[in-house]
Amino acid sequence: MKPSRSKRLAISLTIIGTSVFAWVLLLVNPGHILGIVHCHISDSGPSAASFQMLLAMNPFSSQLAGWGLMVVAMMLPKLILPIQDIYGQVFKHQRLISVLLFVLGYIGVWIVAGVFIITATLVINVILPKSYIPIAVIGIITLVWQFSPIKQRCLNRGHVHKRLSAFGWKAYADVLVFGVVHGLWCVGSGWALMWFPMILPAGHNFAMVIVTFIMMSEHLEHPRFPGWHIYFSSKLARTIFTRTQIIIKRTLQFN
């Protein structure tokens, strides 16, 4: 049974709050505490000739931490519906741990994907430093993937919400597996879009915002038949527009 309206709202706000916090860290990056992966080009400068040097200036671990932060900021809002669903179908005292296990499984998959993406990014930077060729190539790959049936299949599967076992260790295993599986479909649909801002020589923050918008929007769309669709989702924009109208209307009604 889905949680009550007020519970659903509380869940949404908690998740959005966490995501906003991660965004602030990403964008403000106070005192450069985070070796954010996308900063490496300016850090390393034109002298970055070797892989070692690049790595020395951008430790892999801190790049991965930056990636993780990016995932939290950009992906967490997409987890609102499955988290509400989990919250509703597990026993009360298991709600928090179940949700955390789900998020862990989900982010775990993205971190593994991050290892590949970061490595590939570093290699590209060694071979073609400060070049626009990689972004052009990856831009094309992203677009092709975007309109492909495989991507649509991944998006469709992302709508499947698993029924969880209620009792015993299986309850925990199920929710973890749900997180991993959900993460796999999500990486399948979003890996190219996530890679794109990282490879941009400039303007990655702006690109990240745009990419988040696109991913949220396509995630909200209903499943469709997988095929080649040249299609840009406007669902998030429409949703924000009507939600704002409704909130204004409600506020006026109550005052």
Binding site: P3, S4, S6, G88, V90, K92, A166
Partner: peptide, 14 residues
């Protein structure tokens, strides 16, 4: 207004 919902029991497996 605020009805709380909570899982009370379930079958094991499908």
């Amino acid at each position: 207004n605020k009805k709380e919902r909570e899982l009370v029991g379930a079958s094991q497996g499908s």
